[in-house]
C-alpha cells in the first residue's frame, strides 16, 4: 500500500460520507442521481463477491464492508425513506443506465483476465464503475445549479480516481509484475469523464463563486 492508494481510498470514503451527510442533514437527495448510486451498489456487490473467500488484509475487508453497506444505505434512503424520496429529481434522472450495465457485461465477457465467474464479475465491476458517474454528471448538467455538498461529493469522487492513477504509476515503477491493464485503462476513462466537472469546479473555486455548470 502506498500513500497515493491510501489517500485515494480515503477521498473515496469521504465522498460517500459527504453524500450521507447531505442526505441526513438536509433530508433531501435533490441533485443526486439514484441511478448512479444503484450502479455503484452493483459495482461493489459484483467486485466484492470474494469478500469471504479471498483474504488480502483486515483493511481491505473492512473497507469492502463499509463500501457495500454505505452505498446500500444511500440507495435505501433514496428509495425507501418517506421524506428523502420526495426530493428525488426523477424527471432529471433519465439516463438509460441499463445500457451501461449491458455494455459492461458484454465487455467483461469479451475482455477479462481469466474466464471464471469471479474474474468476469471483477472485470464487469471495473467497467461499470468507469461509467457509473454518467447519470450523476448528466443530472447536474441538466439542473445547472449544484449545491455545495453535491459539488464536494463529485469533487472527492474525482480526486479518488486521480489518486488511483498516481498509485498505478507508483506501482508500475516499484513492483516487478504489476498486472493492471484492465483496471488502468478503465480508470483513465473514468477519470477523463470528470475533466469537464473539474474545470468548472476549479473556476468556481478561483472566482469564489457558486458552482454552476453550463447548459
Amino acid at each position: 500500500m502506498n500513500i497515493f492508494r491510501f489517500a485515494g481510498d480515503m477521498t473515496h470514503l469521504i465522498s460517500i460520507l459527504v453524500l450521507l451527510l447531505k442526505i441526513y442533514a438536509t433530508k433531501s437527495c435533490s441533485g443526486i442521481s439514484r441511478k448512479t448510486q444503484e450502479l455503484y451498489a452493483l459495482v461493489f456487490l459484483a467486485r466484492y463477491v470474494d469478500i469471504f473467500t479471498e483474504f488480502i488484509s483486515v483493511y481491505n475487508t473492512i473497507m469492502k464492508i463499509v463500501f457495500i453497506a454505505s452505498t446500500l444505505a444511500i440507495v435505501w434512503c433514496m428509495r425507501g425513506h418517506r421524506v428523502v424520496r420526495r426530493s428525488y429529481d426523477k424527471e432529471l434522472d433519465t439516463f438509460r443506465h441499463y445500457f451501461l450495465i449491458a455494455a459492461s457485461l458484454v465487455l467483461a465477457l469479451l475482455v477479462h483476465e481469466k474466464f471464471t465467474f469471479q474474474e468476469i464479475l471483477w472485470a464487469f465491476s471495473i467497467y461499470l464503475e468507469a461509467v457509473a458517474i454518467l447519470p450523476q454528471l448528466v443530472l447536474l448538467q441538466r439542473s445547472g445549479n449544484v449545491d455545495n455538498l453535491t459539488g464536494q461529493y463529485v469533487f472527492f469522487l474525482g480526486a479518488y480516481r486521480g489518486l488511483y492513477i498516481l498509485n498505478w504509476i507508483y506501482r508500475y515503477f516499484t513492483e516487478p509484475h504489476f498486472s493492471r491493464w484492465i483496471a488502468c485503462v478503465s480508470g483513465l476513462v473514468q477519470t477523463a469523464l470528470y475533466a469537464d466537472f473539474f474545470y468548472y469546479y476549479f473556476l468556481s473555486w478561483k472566482n469564489n463563486a457558486k458552482l454552476k455548470l453550463p447548459a
Binding site: R5, D9, H12, E54, I56, N60, M63, K64, F67, W122, Y164, N167, W168, R171, E175, P176, H177, F178, S179, R180, I182, A183, C184
Partner: peptide
C-alpha cells in the same frame, strides 16, 4: 490474487 495484481485494490 497474484502478487502485484490490481485485484488487491478496492
Amino acid at each position: 490474487p497474484p502478487k502485484g495484481s490490481s485485484h488487491d485494490e478496492l
